[in-house]
Design a protein around this nucleic acid. Structure first.
Lengths: 222, 222
DNA sequence: TAGATTGTTAATCGATTAACAATC
DNA sequence: TAGATTGTTAATCGATTAACAATC
């Protein structure tokens, strides 16, 4: 922070590769914070996440200056800044649609809260599931989805419904004001251009893994 | 294919970005094949996957020449070649460890087989789960894991156990001969250098999504 | 102060795109 | 054959790394 925040490169062209490294930094900084470490240099942090110190400093410089010459970074402060950049400095409310095995697994996934996300409601259309409680949340009737999203002004949703109904659910969510969807259904979702979809392709990860097994470590990554 | 396979660039440095696009090509080619489309040009396929024709042809050229001037690519043939490159031309056997909600969700995920992977066995340590049948597979006692992997010469495993036991399970799997692990447990796994781990970070996807919502589409991707 | 380490500019490296001769 | 489209080489663009002056 300081007197020179305005000379940074045009924020409208921050590269996607940089954005994708933010969660990585967040993860390691959280780890350090949980161990009550309160100071770290770019060299140390970079070593931990497996990149060069230059890249770490270069990445951060897209957003501002958060360190101090001769000292390094204050862990809590940098973690806070990165959280702000990502937009998780305030807990982000999320709806989960689909309370099958995958939905339940996600609802029970404790880590979300630590990452800044809170599942506020779970929806399903199965009468056998509606009313059941998962991780303290009663499964709601899907008929109330739209109203809930509007009422609570939720912007993010996670879809774990079968592929056949995923597009329909998406349309409802979008109509209600959802701006980002994490999609687990194995189908491409059509959304307007102001809505972002991240598709979780587990098959892709398996394929990359299989390739790497066969060709034993082509090039480092992650 | 043909008379000039040997002039390709050193296969030992195929860039990771290229490998990561292979599943994308595989997915769209599968789609085309399922629609009985049997011819496609690099221009058409590239448009579908959202890249330039140059990039598609450049990517493929790392592995060989699979097209025909003036014609394009035979969908089935190219799909087959890409499957071979990834290593999924023969069904790849996989073990799944952890039969909780996430494990069950994955075991029921029909898409795996279409992607070239077959879950051959599911393991858990919970007596209440052992013996239950999920998607036609009886949940086995975790005590038999090592023996099964060795016996069946399985190279890939999916871990959906709680974080507390993930490392221990990993060690067992590695000792039994597993070469690649898809890890869903929120913990970094230590493995020898000849074993590859792909970590599924759902939190990362949510963070990138949240950033993109706030900054409404920085740069295209996926 | 002297030593350490940042933020940034410049140099390098790698990936993407353009262009086109080869050829089906 | 004429038209289309590949595979590849060369040009461009972007991302990573190196280097260092600024400064805590």
């Amino acid at each position: 922070m300081g007197q020179n925040d305005q000379r940074h490169r045009n924020k409208n062209k921050i590269p996607m590769v940089v954005i994708k490294r933010l969660p990585l930094y967040h993860r390691y900084l959280s780890l350090l914070a949980s161990r009550d470490i309160n100071r770290i240099s770019s060299a140390e942090l970079a070593a931990k996440v497996g990149i060069t110190p230059s890249q770490l400093r270069q990445d951060l410089s897209w957003f501002g200056s958060f360190g101090q010459q001769g000292y390094g970074y204050r862990v809590q402060e940098l973690l806070g800044e990165i959280s702000k950049i990502i937009g998780i400095d305030q807990a982000v409310p999320v709806v989960l649609v689909g309370a099958g095995h995958l939905g339940k697994a996600i609802a029970n996934y404790q880590n979300f809260e630590r990452k800044g996300f809170v599942i506020k409601a779970i929806f399903d259309n199965n009468p056998g599931l509606i009313g059941l409680v998962v991780n303290g949340l009663k499964i709601r009737n899907i008929t109330g989805l739209k109203h809930y999203i509007q009422q609570e002004k939720i912007e993010m949703g996670i879809i774990t419904v079968p592929a056949e109904v995923a597009q329909q659910i998406t349309d409802e969510m979008v109509a209600a004001g959802i701006k980002g969807i994490l999609n687990f259904a194995p189908i491409s979702l059509n959304v307007p251009s102001d809505v972002t979809v991240e598709h979780v392709h587990i098959g892709d990860s398996l394929m990359v893994l299989k390739y790497m097994i066969n060709h034993s470590k082509i090039k480092e990554e992650e």
